[in-house]
């Protein structure tokens, strides 16, 4: 892959950035350069990946056998108890939603592996674990506007974000955005906007306004909007939850 020609000074700053070696002044200089040359963000991302790869170089040493069980035991002890903290009630079968979402996700990612097969064959108990006290998983499909679109959205209410994995969603031109809406009681709350990439996919985590979720989220909608910050969803509903 050919890389854009970059002044030596900027190359030095980019290397220093991923090694976390820049002074505040140097970081600011790089930031300003990137604002004018956003195409270099990709090169920085590649350098970050390179940084991760350098971590493969040390001699591989097996972690102590007890470490795995210690971590899992500790995780179980800090996991919130679903039955005690659960505040969100799903309006439809969790099994239906979870299996639908997982199947769609598998298709979206072209995956057919043991893990997902296990998921699809899972028990009700396992689905309850997947549900979690502060997360909601929704499977979505396209409307007539985008009939091939499909995917899943996880609302992480504790972290205040949504994780989107959507496919076959046409990329919108400049000036238009997809907006996600949550139905909370009788209100329609705008939760953030996004666009798909050139492969018609969305793999993204976006912040959501959980303070406005004063009741359980009953369903989600994805609309196509021309306004930056619409107060209500347009009639252009592009995706909706599989019911």
């Amino acid at each position: 892959m050919s890389e854009p020609t970059v002044p030596d000074r900027i190359e030095e700053l980019m290397a220093g950035y991923v090694l976390n070696l820049l002074s505040p002044e140097e970081a600011e200089e790089l930031k300003q350069y990137l604002q004018q040359n956003p195409q270099l963000v990709r090169q920085i991302a590649r350098s970050q990946e390179l940084m991760a790869l350098i971590g493969y170089a040390p001699a591989r040493v097996a972690a102590p056998a007890s470490l795995r069980s210690k971590i899992l035991a500790e995780a179980r002890s800090v996991a919130p108890a679903p039955n005690l903290r659960k505040i969100f009630i799903f309006p439809f079968s969790w099994q239906q939603v979870a299996m639908g979402a997982i199947a769609v996700l598998a298709l979206a990612l072209g995956i057919n592996n043991y893990y997902l097969q296990q998921k699809l064959a899972t028990t009700q108990e396992r689905l309850q674990a997947l549900q979690g006290p502060d997360t909601q998983l929704f499977a979505l499909k396209g409307t007539a506007v985008a009939p091939n679109a499909s995917g899943s959205i996880v609302l992480d209410l504790e972290a205040g974000r949504a994780v989107l994995a959507l496919q076959n969603l046409p990329r919108l031109p400049a000036g238009q955005h997809y907006h996600m809406w949550a139905m909370v009681g009788d209100k329609q709350i705008r939760c953030g906007r996004f666009n798909s990439n050139e492969d018609k996919r969305v793999v993204e985590a976006i912040p959501i306004p959980i303070d406005e979720y004063t009741a359980p989220v009953s369903t989600l909608l994805v609309t196509k909007e021309s306004a930056d910050n619409p107060s209500h969803p347009s009639q252009d509903v592009v995706m909706q939850v599989i019911s």
């Binding site: 899992l72 179980r76 996700l105 979690g132 997360t135």
Partner: peptide
Amino acid sequence: LELFQALVAKDPSALAALYDCYGDL
């Protein structure tokens, strides 16, 4: 993405899978 979504959903098997993939590394 599978691992991440399962972690966000607090699926304990995801943590085990994450460890199995990357723990030694």
